[in-house]
Nucleic acid binder design. Structure first.
Length: 138
DNA sequence: CGCTTGACCGGAA
DNA sequence: ATTCCGGCCAAGC
């Protein structure tokens, strides 16, 4: 019976289609802004047959998995976790990601966290205004 | 073939 | 504030 109930974790029913949606959203993130894995997952509708509650629990990891092999064109550095921190990935790159974001104007505090209230972006802001949605510069 | 390990998240201790 | 745990599939070693 398809993906009803408790049957989905590592991948969506159609991983390629799902990843495509993830990349599409990530590509929209402006320089100097960030989104979280869970936020992106919440913007994508649960695939047919997937229980919404299960989706809510599992989808953030699908997004993470998708980001693991994202194309070079995708600004992967603008995706961080719900705590406002850069996710620790196997090997290295945390420093690289942080540096890339700092070059875009994102500020990290002593605890290596980003103020999401200030830098988190959502597609709703897109194109609404030509006003720079820039975080204020102190 | 079995064990380990995931670009996550929210709630509990 | 921080650490631990459940969720429960699939690819890699």
């Amino acid at each position: 019976m398809l993906y009803s109930g408790a049957m989905a974790y590592a991948s969506a029913p159609d991983p390629k289609a799902y990843e495509a949606q993830v990349y599409q959203i990530v590509r929209m993130i402006p320089s100097g802004r960030v989104m979280t894995y869970g936020q992106i997952a919440a913007l994508i509708a649960p695939p047919p047959g997937v229980d919404p509650i299960q989706y809510h629990k599992l989808a953030p990891r699908w997004v993470g998995t998708a980001m693991a092999h994202c194309p070079d064109e995708v600004p992967w550095q603008r995706v961080i976790n719900s705590q406002g921190k850069v996710s620790e990935r196997p090997g290295m790159g945390m420093m690289v990601q942080r540096k890339l974001l700092e070059q875009e104007g994102v500020v990290f505090d002593e605890r290596e966290r980003v103020d999401l209230k200030r830098y988190q972006w959502s597609p709703g802001e897109a194109g609404q205004t030509s006003e720079p949605a820039q975080p204020r510069l102190l």
